[in-house]
């Protein structure tokens, strides 16, 4: 059955932290790396507005997701040294666990994992020239749990975590990520389940870089405009440098979803820079 819903959403931890004490505490660490960020730090009122706007965006995405009545949600995200480290960094990884769990501050997450769909994607990839890594245990982290808190708060359907290395150089090209998405679309079409897909991360931010604290809002707006007019395939022609110089390495996760939707126009887009670190972006494609 063709894919029933496609979504993309930022996973910045401060989206889910409570405005006020939690935000401030978290940001104290951030400012040790980005001292300039102190100058632009949002007031409590601005933090609350950001949270409110993010909740509004997530409400639209969640409504679209629920209307599509999916049987499974593929979650394309990057690992940030929770499951993979410099001893082994898979470029693309499929989760073959029975279930997946994670913790974010006081929030616990526990989902069934759709191992059968994972195996089908893995097999199709091996047959067609995309050799995924795979494994039977992963721990969920903020790159998945932050959007899932808003989009799938109850584990009513299984998920399938798929990982893209956007975190440790060298990372895959936008075109390769797009091809992974095309493969997933083909596999979904041949499956009996109603498959939805979510990409997480971005938009512009520079974690761990000397540019931490900068947000390239102009580039992010360009990306979202391209998605609104249905030109996502043109982004496969972007070079890695184009994405990386704008702090959009995690847009590689989004590229996978773009490979599943092709020229479909985004039905809703939202964008809100958080002043200090990240351009929060949220997109839904009603299919």
């Amino acid at each position: 059955m063709p894919l029933v819903s496609a979504l993309a959403a930022s996973h910045a931890p401060n989206i889910l932290l409570e405005p006020g004490d939690e935000w401030e505490d978290f940001m104290r660490l951030h400012y040790t790396m980005a001292p300039k960020g102190v100058d632009s730090k949002p007031t409590l009122e601005q933090q609350r507005t950001l949270r409110h706007d993010a909740e509004r965006a997530f409400a639209v995405l969640r409504s679209d997701l629920e209307a599509a009545r999916p049987d499974v949600l593929i979650v394309v995200a990057n690992d940030q040294f929770v499951n993979f480290f410099f001893n082994v960094i898979p470029t693309f990884f499929i989760t073959l666990a029975d279930e997946v769990k994670g913790q974010f501050t006081r929030h616990s997450f526990h989902y069934k994992n759709h191992k059968d769909l994972g195996r089908a994607i893995l097999r199709a990839g091996l047959d067609e020239g995309i050799d995924f890594a795979f494994g039977e245990y992963v721990e969920l982290q903020h790159t998945q749990t932050v959007p899932l808190y808003f989009l799938l708060p109850k584990p009513e359907i299984p998920i399938l975590p798929v990982y893209v290395n956007t975190w440790v150089d060298p990372v895959p090209t936008p075109r390769r990520c797009y091809q992974v998405g095309q493969l997933i679309r083909e596999v979904a079409s041949a499956r009996p389940e109603r498959v939805a897909i979510l990409a997480t991360g971005g938009l512009s931010h520079f974690p761990g870089s000397s540019r931490i604290g900068e947000i390239d809002t102009k580039f992010d707006h360009q990306l979202l405009e391209i998605l609104r007019v249905g030109k996502a395939p043109t982004l496969a022609d972007y070079t890695l440098d184009q994405l990386l110089q704008a702090g959009d390495s995690e847009f590689l996760n989004w590229m996978v979803v773009l490979g599943t939707i092709g020229e479909a126009k985004a039905s809703s887009t939202f964008y809100m820079p958080d002043f200090v670190a990240t351009g929060w972006g949220f997109v839904s494609w009603r299919i």
């Binding site: 978290f26 104290r28 913790q103 501050t105 721990e139 903020h142």
Partner: peptide
């Protein structure tokens, strides 16, 4: 490394992954 710094030892950062 800030996890060893008393000022950051109980930071909320460590309560999420």
């Amino acid at each position: 490394i800030l996890r060893l710094n008393p000022a950051f030892r109980d930071n909320v950062y460590w309560a999420q992954k």
